[in-house]
């Protein structure tokens, strides 16, 4: 589904991501772990399009229709089915929870200024469909009761859920989750884990940045480890646990 080839990106001469290559298969749930500053979020931004690589290529698409996307704008990549949930709460304040989720459908709907201004029947039908989809997405993350409140009024944990609902309303084919569980309480983490599990069962390809080992072990098919911008290891959770490069990256040299 996703193929990254020798991608590098530097900021002011310091590599945030250095010569990273990895492939994520369709339907896979891939965890990306690594110490702080390892380049995990930078990698996600290179996939979502908020950063462009200095060198290397990013290709995306199901088998047979894979294409390079590393020069596309983020909204063009969103149209191709890539959705991202940011680490911080990036909500549309002043809009209702429902409207926030409806924005998520932007990536797969078309009607523009002209048909909106004229209120064409097609446009109104599309609006009704988007609203129904958004309510369904809110149901999934348990926010339906909040639909008509403003997004700023949500507690932090629910703000994350709202971002997830927004991403789901786009009906993505590749979902990027940047530390979705951080700052959540136990019950919220459990709900999130169950949601990710159900998405996996539906065959959605997911990439997940996460620190919590239990969370990763439960959800990830495979794990990629970044350290100082380099992709130092990849494998199943068990393989990664025994990997010497990973142990030394986390615990320092000489431990094994």
């Amino acid at each position: 589904m996703l193929q990254i080839d020798s991608v590098s990106r530097a900021f002011g001469g310091v590599y945030a991501v250095r010569d990273v290559s990895l492939t994520v298969a369709e339907g896979e749930t891939r965890a990306v772990i690594g110490p702080n500053g390892a380049g995990k979020s930078t990698l996600f931004n290179l996939i979502s399009g908020h950063l462009l690589p200095d060198s290397g290529t990013v290709s995306y698409g199901p088998e047979g229709e894979r294409r390079r996307i590393d020069r596309l704008t983020p909204h063009a990549r969103a149209r191709l089915g890539i959705a991202i949930v940011f680490q911080g709460a990036r909500l549309f304040g002043g809009m209702t929870v429902l409207e926030n989720v409806m924005v998520g459908a932007h990536a797969r709907t078309r009607h523009g200024f002209l048909s909106a201004a004229l209120r064409l029947p097609r446009h109104r039908e599309e609006e009704a469909r988007i609203e129904a989809d958004a309510l369904a997405a809110l149901d999934r993350v348990g926010l339906r009761d909040w639909a008509h409140r403003t997004a700023d009024a949500l507690p932090l944990g629910q703000q994350r859920s709202l971002q997830v609902a927004r991403a789901l309303c786009a009906r993505p084919r590749l979902l990027l989750l940047d530390e979705p569980a951080s700052g959540l309480r136990a019950a919220e983490r459990e709900a999130l884990a169950q949601l990710i599990e159900s998405l996996r069962e539906e065959g959605l390809t997911t990439m997940l940045i996460e620190h919590d080992v239990a969370f990763v072990s439960r959800l990830a098919d495979r794990v990629s480890v970044l350290d100082l911008g380099r992709h130092i290891a990849e494998g199943t959770v068990e393989e990664i646990r025994r990997d010497e490069a990973v142990l030394s990256a986390y615990l320092g040299e000489g431990v094994s």
Partner: peptide, 27 residues
């Protein structure tokens, strides 16, 4: 009509967060 519809939502979204609006598919 515009404000209450899809492009209007995109506009209001980008006024608060251009990054999040972009990744939701708003050009």
């Amino acid at each position: 009509n515009i404000v209450k519809s899809r492009p209007g939502r995109g506009l209001r979204a980008l006024a608060t967060s251009e990054v999040a609006a972009e990744s939701s598919g708003v050009p």
